[in-house]
Amino acid sequence: MTLRTLLLAAVLSLPFTAPARAGDDWVPPVTDPLVKKECGACHMAFQPAFLPARSWNKMMDTLADHFGEDASLPADKVAAIRAYLTQNAGDVVNQGRARKYMRHISGGDAPQRITENPDFLRKHQLPERVWKDPKVVTKSNCPACHVGADRGWYEDD
């Protein structure tokens, strides 16, 4: 390979190498097919980096009352999803936006709502009409405004 090809390859690969741009508006995307399918059945499959592992453990323990919904799953699926979420949790990966979110969560806490994190609230001080948009429905509907949310991108849109 000539130097030129190497340089070209390096330049071309830049936009696709997430950690190279792993700034404040990025978290590692969900890659596990089961997590994508089951968590994504009713809402966006939120990236595990937004909550610490103990939050995900609590959530997987309480699926029968999942924010008022019975989201029960067979035990083998619960175990597989739990493993992925806890291994990629915010206090484990500590990458991108996760660092900021984790700063607001104290040691013993296991918060369940990403939308109540002070960092989320600080970045979402929006007029009421934005939240009332029929496409939005609820604050946890990230892709309604963040077109790259599924890929972990939460740049200001």
């Binding site: 809402h43 509907n141 309604a144």
Partner: peptide, 8 residues
Amino acid sequence: GRNAKTGR
């Protein structure tokens, strides 16, 4: 359609 609770 659209999930009335989550907007999905």
